[in-house]
Design a protein around this nucleic acid. Structure first.
Lengths: 337, 337
DNA sequence: CTGAAAGCGCTTACAG
DNA sequence: CTGAAAGCGCTTACAG
């Protein structure tokens, strides 16, 4: 493989000129630059990554810690991973994947061996064990998700509270006064997820503020679980005309199935909104109004926040992404009885 | 951050002795080694990754190219990714993730900058554009999946043909003589997937060899799609008493739903086998007999194959993993009419 | 606008 | 069993 000396020789310049020409860190005469570019092309030269890391102060690699626990929805995690990788590449950064098995030790390892310039953290829980390590490492870091103590950390996430309010207000505007919330499985609310309870609490608060009736139930991802959850909501909320879903994709499908079996037309009899969903709701029958979980935006923003830290001054802060509402036709005015 | 010179000074030895002590590449006096280990511990020393890459001939990084196209089942891809990362880590290798957007250019880039020691390739299609690049790069490589031309390549995959035969024989043994195959969506059979047609063809061949009736239909992942597929199979196969599923998780759930709605008891009226599935079938009602897609085994084996190439002599070859059958109670003898 | 040279932190022959 | 030193291929002050 050609190295910088080969290029310098071929272009008839010194290696420092080659280096500067490639980095753009000092002006190069057009004619010189032309000869260098040609030599690079001819030789298929690409700077050696290790030499660059050692000589420069950058590795051009980010670590992405993407744990996968029981509650993790794999497609959602995948969407975030791909979004982070794509965003990182657009800044000429590669992404090294760290998994659950090596969560904290992996972070220490890549940091202390100077393998990475920054860290992006996925699937953050309330009392995430990685958070303390991150503070101690003091590398540029962005978390996608919000732990309970955000001191000194930079976080980005969907504004789940605003999403809940948006779901409620959009239904209230259409005239609904009794709205149920089908939540995730039970354990998600106990095992340190931050977004599920955040959404639930804001949902209930928004309902109260609007003066309407609301109810919440966790939901197991099975036919029976969905029926139980739905029946519980209906029992607590006799006049329920709308359901907000903050749960996984399977539950969506099962619910629509159950409603069809029971001859409950959507949206004629029941309006449905899918909230904070990482998947498309277009394939459902009917397609569901959705407040998307913006994996693309979050991933890109997380990368940008790390780049900003790398660039210099940047104050740690929490950045919440405003929710958006996509109308697909699964909500309507409540039926008049 | 402490470097090797700091450790050498603290231990009262030369830096080469420190290096050899850590790599184990030459014998070190027990007492000397003790002083070095202590110094490493005291200083929290970890070798600089860039320096190692530059001085040594290894980077201890693998590239994992994991494209995500329309047909990709995200949970399956994620399972393979995690399995590869976990296996790589067990050999002290980190994994750099390359995505669809940069499939071939990314491979060239990481190879020519000497960023990685080897490449692991996921989701291989029949005429995968990455394959030619891999041949040209001549880096240690393992593909999970089998392209049409495997010359010079090392591949590992489930033996889909054997899996199809296993599904058929296990049903035939129970007395079934008319077995339907619900396949993936149409496009998967046209767009260069290798495993879907491989399974289908072996299934039909095994049926013919056993002297029983078989039929195959592609399946769209919707209630309607599943009903159409099921009805087509039943129409072609009047006495159908068993169905083999080689399709995604949603279709499994929908099919069981449809059968329940039609009062077709599983396995009393219809036996079901889930074949080459990347997901657990335990949560279905009933849990389904399954021939698993062994993501754990494939991922680990792919890593081992790259390590072997790194270690020295290794002839390119295709390695097929024998399928296994997990009985869950969704098959039985056909009903006697 | 360009070059000569130090130095990044390791690994590994070469020597003893 | 251990050490002195070359060298990996860059980046970046220092000089002109």
């Amino acid at each position: 493989m050609a190295n910088i000396t080969d290029v310098a020789r071929a272009a008839g310049v010194s290696i420092s000129t080659v280096s500067y020409a490639l980095s753009g860190k000092r002006p190069i005469a057009a004619e010189t630059r032309g000869r260098i570019d040609q030599a690079v092309l001819d030789l298929g030269y690409r700077p050696n990554a290790g030499a660059r890391m050692l000589a420069g102060s950058r590795t051009n690699i980010f670590a992405l810690t993407a744990p996968m626990h029981e509650d993790t929805h794999p497609p959602a995690l995948m969407a975030f991973v791909l979004s982070v990788v794509t965003a990182a590449r657009s800044f000429d950064y590669d992404v090294l994947l760290l998994t659950e098995g090596e969560a904290t030790s992996g972070l220490r390892r890549v940091a202390s061996s100077s393998l990475v310039d920054g860290i992006i953290v996925l699937d953050v829980t309330t009392d995430d064990e990685r958070v303390d390590v991150l503070r101690e490492l003091a590398l540029p870091t962005a978390l996608i998700g919000v732990p309970s103590d955000t001191a000194g950390l930079t976080c980005v996430d969907l504004d789940f509270e605003a999403a809940a309010r948006l779901a409620v207000s959009s239904l209230v505007e259409q005239g609904h006064t009794a709205i149920g919330l089908m939540g995730h499985a039970d354990q998600l609310y106990n095992r340190g997820s931050n977004y599920a309870p955040r959404f639930r609490d804001a949902f209930l608060a928004a309902g109260a503020a609007a003066g309407i009736s609301t109810a919440f139930h966790t939901t197991e991802a099975s036919r029976e679980g969905v029926e139980v959850s739905l029946d519980n909501l209906a029992a607590e909320l006799p006049g329920m005309t709308a359901v907000v879903l903050n749960c996984n994709e399977n539950v969506h499908g099962i619910l629509l199935e159950v409603l069809r079996a029971r001859d409950v037309a959507v949206p004629a009899k029941l309006s449905i909104i899918s909230a904070c969903s990482s998947f498309s709701t277009d394939h459902f029958l009917p397609p569901l109004d959705v407040i998307p979980l913006p994996s693309l935006v979050s991933g890109r923003r997380a990368v940008e926040l790390v780049i900003e830290q790398l660039a210099g001054t940047h104050d740690p802060h929490v950045e919440l992404i405003a929710p958006t509402y996509e109308r697909k036709g699964s909500t309507a005015a409540p039926p008049r009885d």
